[in-house]
Amino acid sequence: MTPALSFQESGPVAVQADASRTPEADPPNAEKRPRVSILIPARDEAATIEHTVRAALASTGAAIEVLVGDDHSTDATAALVRAIAATDSRLSLVPIPSLPEGWTGKNHACAVLAGRARFEHLLFIDADVTLAPAAAAALAAHATATDAALVSGVPRQRMGTLGERLTVPMIGFLLVGYLPVPMMRSSLRTSLGAACGQLVLVDRAVYAATGGHGAIRGFLHDGVLLARRLRGAGHRTDLVAGHALASCRMYRGWGEAWAGFSKNAHEGMATPRALPIWSLLLFGGHILPVLLLILFGLGLVTPVAAGLALAALLLSLGTRAAITFAMREPAVTIPLHPVTVTVALLIQWNVLLRRKAAGAAVWKGRSYPLNGA
Rank of each mutant, 00 (worst) to 15 (best):
M1G: 01
L5G: 06
F7T: 02
P23V: 14
E24A: 13
N29C: 12
R33W: 03
I40D: 02
P41E: 02
R43T: 10
D44I: 02
D44H: 04
A46D: 02
E50C: 00
A55C: 09
T60R: 03
G61Q: 04
A62I: 09
G69F: 11
D71A: 12
V81T: 01
S89P: 03
P95I: 09
I96N: 04
N107R: 08
A114Y: 05
L123N: 03
A135I: 13
S152M: 03
R158H: 15
M159V: 11
T161P: 10
G172Q: 12
V181W: 02
V181L: 03
L188W: 05
T190A: 11
A194Q: 12
L199K: 04
R204E: 10
T210S: 12
G212A: 13
I216F: 03
H221K: 12
A233P: 02
K263W: 00
G268R: 01
M269E: 01
M269P: 01
T271D: 04
L275M: 01
P276N: 00
H286D: 05
L292P: 09
L292A: 14
L293G: 13
L300R: 08
A305S: 00
L310R: 00
I323S: 06
F325V: 15
R328N: 04
V339Q: 00
T340G: 06
T340K: 10
V343K: 04
L346G: 08
I347W: 04
N350D: 05
R366Y: 11
A373M: 06
